[in-house]
């Protein structure tokens, strides 16, 4: 859960880059949706951790500052500091492409985390975690399919 919060926070950080770098209305709309869903899920994870007496990271206030990713543990699919730097430097179609590629990589990492969760002895034995993981799985699969389709419509590099 604590790891997944940082994982989600990176998606929010990526979405925050769209406004100044892309004019694509469909991408902007996708970004808004990812922002809302990831923030909702972060809040849900924080609440769950509080209820279980554990520390809940709150990375969102720091978004916009240069986090660089170097203090966080590596999690499946998370963009490296170099990838984030490249994304921040890109503009227009180049940005759109890097964003979609990066977010697909990011979401596939979340799917991997869910797969590992369900394959871990003793995990997902409360409704809250079971539901959350099932929802992440369904939502992010759908968004990956959507982003792949969007990527296919971008002209080649």
């Amino acid at each position: 859960m604590q790891g997944m919060i940082h994982h989600h926070a990176q998606a929010v950080e990526m979405v925050a880059l769209i406004a100044a770098r892309s004019t694509d209305v469909v991408l902007r709309s996708l970004g808004e949706r990812i922002d809302v869903s990831q923030r909702d899920e972060i809040a849900m994870m924080q609440q769950w951790l509080h209820q279980h007496g554990q520390e809940a990271p709150d990375p969102l206030p720091h978004i916009g500052m240069d986090m660089g990713g170097h203090t966080m543990p590596a999690m499946p699919g998370m963009l490296t500091a170099a990838q984030m730097t490249a994304l921040k430097a890109a503009r227009g179609r180049a940005f759109d492409r890097l964003f979609l590629e990066g977010m697909i990589q990011h979401h596939e990492g979340a799917l991997e985390m869910v797969r590992v969760l369900f394959a871990t002895t003793g995990a997902a034995q409360s409704t809250a975690i079971f539901r959350f993981a099932s929802d992440v799985d369904a939502d992010q699969r759908a968004e990956i399919a959507r982003m792949r389709a969007m990527l296919a419509t971008l002209s080649p590099k």
Partner: peptide, 8 residues
């Protein structure tokens, strides 16, 4: 197949 039906 899943996804949006257009922007917005």
């Amino acid at each position: 197949k899943g996804g949006e039906h257009g922007a917005g």
